[in-house]
Simulated assay, not measured.
Amino acid sequence: MMTTQTFDATKAEIFTDRILGVLNDGALALMISVGHRTKLFDTLAELPPATSQEIADTAGLNERYVREWLGAMVTGQLIDYDPAEKTYYLPPEHSAFLTKSAGANNMAPIAQFISVLGTVEDKIVDCFSQGGGVPYSEYKRFHEVMAEESGQTVVAALEEYILPLIPGIKEALAHGINVLDVGCGRGRAITKLAELFPNSKFWGYDISSEAIATATAEAQQKRLNNVRFQIKDAATFNESDRYHLITTFDAIHDQAKPDVVLQNIHKALRPDGVYLMQDIHAATEVNDNLDHPIAPFLYTVSCMHCMTVSLADGGMGLGTMWGQEKALQMLADAGFTHVEVKQLEHDLQNDYYIVRKD
C-alpha cells in the first residue's frame, strides 16, 4: 500500500539555505587557497587597515585581482571592511588560522585540496560510469600540497608529540637504529628524523619518481648522509628482519594492495621492532561517522583521490575512510598481534597505531 508523503515547506527552506551555504563555502575554499598561495593572508596580517592598492603593492600583486579577492573575503566574513575609509583588515583571531605564522593551526593549506581535486573532476565523472580510477600522474600539485599540509601537522609534531607515543623510541633513535618510511612522498618526515638523530640510518620508499627526486634533493641540500630514498612499489619490496622502526604516514589506505604492503612491513620489521602507522581517524561504517567534524571533506578526498588512485592500479580501493575497524582487521591478517591506537589532543584528523609483532 502506497503512502502519501507531505511536503514540509519549512524543511525545504532550511535545505535551500544549506545548499546556498555549500555554494558560498565551496567558493570561499578556492579563494582561501588563492590567498594562501599568493601570501595575501600573510601580507594582511602584517598591515594595519589598508586599501586594496596598498595591499596589492605590499604583496607585489595586481590590484584588480586583489580587490576582487577581497570582495569574496569581506562578503564571506573572513576579512573586515571599513566602507568609509575603503580599507581592509584581517583580524588577529582570523590570522591565527590563516597564516604561516600560525604553524599547525594554519588551515589555509588544506583548502588547496579543493582546487587540486577539481582538476580531475571530469575524469572522476567518467569513472562513475566506466569504473577504473584516476592515476597519480593526473594530480599535478597533490604531492606538493600534501607535503605542505603534513609538514605543519605530522612533521612539526614528530619530536614533541608523535615519537613519545612509543616508549623508548627516542632513546633508541639517539643510540642508532634502522628506520624505513614506506610511501614517504617527498620525504619530509624521514628527513626530519634523519636531522634529529644522526646516529640512526633512514630509508624512504615511494612509487613517485617526482617525489623521490624532491626528497633526495632536499636531503642533499641539508648534507644528510644517513638517509636514502628509492623509487619502489611498497607491494613489491622484499626484506626480512631489517628495521627496528617502520613508519607510514597517511599512506596505507592509498595502496593498490594494502594487505600485501602490511605483510611486507611485517616481514621487514625485526622481531623486537615497532611499526608506527599514522592514518585517518574514522570509523569503517558510515553511520558511525555522522558526528565526525570533517567527514564530508574526507569522503570527498577519498572519492576524488585516495580511493581512485588505488582503483586505477587495479587495487582494493580502501579509501580515506577505511576506518579503525578495517585497519585493525588488516593488521591482524598481516600477522601483527599487538596493536595500540592512540590519538593526539591537537590532532582531530589522525589515529596513530603502535604496532608490534609480539
Rank of each mutant, 00 (worst) to 15 (best):
P167T: 09
D8G: 04
R242W: 07
L70A: 04
R270I: 09
V286A: 07
L276P: 04
F202D: 01
G314V: 13
F7G: 09
V274P: 08
S137H: 07
Y136V: 14
K170R: 15
L331C: 10
V274R: 01
Q220N: 13
P293Y: 03
K39T: 03
C127P: 01
M277S: 00
G132V: 06
A108C: 06
Y243T: 02
A156E: 13
Q343D: 01
T58D: 06
F297N: 00
D57F: 03
T153P: 01
V309L: 11
G118C: 06
D358A: 01
D122K: 04
V154M: 09
I32Q: 00
M321Y: 03
I55D: 00
I177M: 08
H338D: 07
V66P: 00
Y65E: 05
L70V: 08
A104M: 12
I280P: 04
T191N: 03
F7T: 10
T300W: 07
N264D: 14
Y205G: 09
A104E: 12
M1G: 05
A334D: 13
R141W: 10
K170D: 09
I231F: 08
K201H: 12
V125A: 04
V74I: 10
V286M: 07
Y65N: 06
L344I: 10
F113S: 11
P48Q: 06
L290Q: 02
F7H: 06
W203Q: 04
Y65T: 09
